[in-house]
Design a protein around this nucleic acid. Structure first.
Lengths: 149, 149
DNA sequence: TTGATAAATAGTAATCATTCCTATATAGTA
DNA sequence: TACTATATAGGAATGATTACTATTTATCAA
């Protein structure tokens, strides 16, 4: 799911983003950034915490959680739209879209060029500063259709 | 936000949906249904619970929560996409779309006919049973743009 | 109309995600 | 190198959500 980029580009982007927003570059933030983007699928804060902990054994969960939230506020990282479940992050920065199964709660990524091209209505772009757009589909996934009990 | 419909239609729909899925029609479910659709904006389970409690003083929160979840599973009620905050419901059944402010976390409804008409790609409709589609925009809302501290 | 039965509910208790608090440590800068 | 605003660790508090169980009830068949 996540885009493969050379590590040096990733870290240059990280450094630039931090400086842009006046965030100090700490070892904790660096490792959290690396691990968040190394993740596949849509990791929770806890999943990222567990990975970070391997490199920084006595980091606190709060630091990981707080950092992920500030990353998402600054547009460094996306939060996946959820439906009452724990917050999950999306390291995939390329335009993509989501299908959600209402039975098993899975969120499945898909790519569709025509969806990437939809125009923001003027009434919206006048009022708000739009930084991202995504089509979210809802329904029953293949697995759940087959295993209808 | 919610569509105004004659109450009798609402209740006929409720009854039909319950029978379709083998749900018993209980006074609790009836009142929860009524109050969920009377709500404006995007109420939490707790907000609906407080309203239902006026009519059924000793209903439990668990019953309200469980009922709302089962309604959403059966397509009776929508869950609003959220970003780590408490689950919220959407009583607006008409096609509409959402803008999310990453600063203040508001979800703002908007209507855009061209978005309603987007086609589901065949690769998706073959694999999944799609029951709803929504465009989700992300950015900074008008209020937050003005009050940048 | 009534009795049987599977489903639903009330009333907790338990769990888990998330946020808050404070003393200590540190990155960036003069 | 020393100063200062930030950031962090650790743990406590809060709040949402789910789980559990005894009791009640809607539905349906006789």
């Amino acid at each position: 799911m996540s885009i493969r980029r050379p590590k040096e580009n990733m870290m240059a982007r990280f450094k630039a983003k931090c400086e842009e927003h006046g965030l100090k570059i700490t070892p904790q933030r660096t490792v959290i950034y690396e691990e968040a983007f190394r993740s596949k699928a849509h990791p929770t804060a806890n999943a990222i915490y567990e990975k970070v902990r391997i490199k920084l054994p006595n980091i606190s969960f709060d630091t990981v959680n707080r950092t992920l939230i500030s990353f998402s506020r600054l547009g460094i990282l996306d939060i996946v739209e959820g439906y009452g479940d724990p917050r999950r992050y999306d390291p995939d920065l390329s335009p993509h879209h989501h299908f959600r199964c209402v039975q098993c709660a899975r969120i499945i990524d898909f790519y569709e060029k025509s969806f990437d091209l939809i125009d923001i209505p003027e009434k919206i772009s006048k009022m708000f500063k739009v930084t991202d757009k995504k089509v979210v589909l809802k329904g029953i996934c293949d697995k759940c259709q087959n295993s209808k009990t």
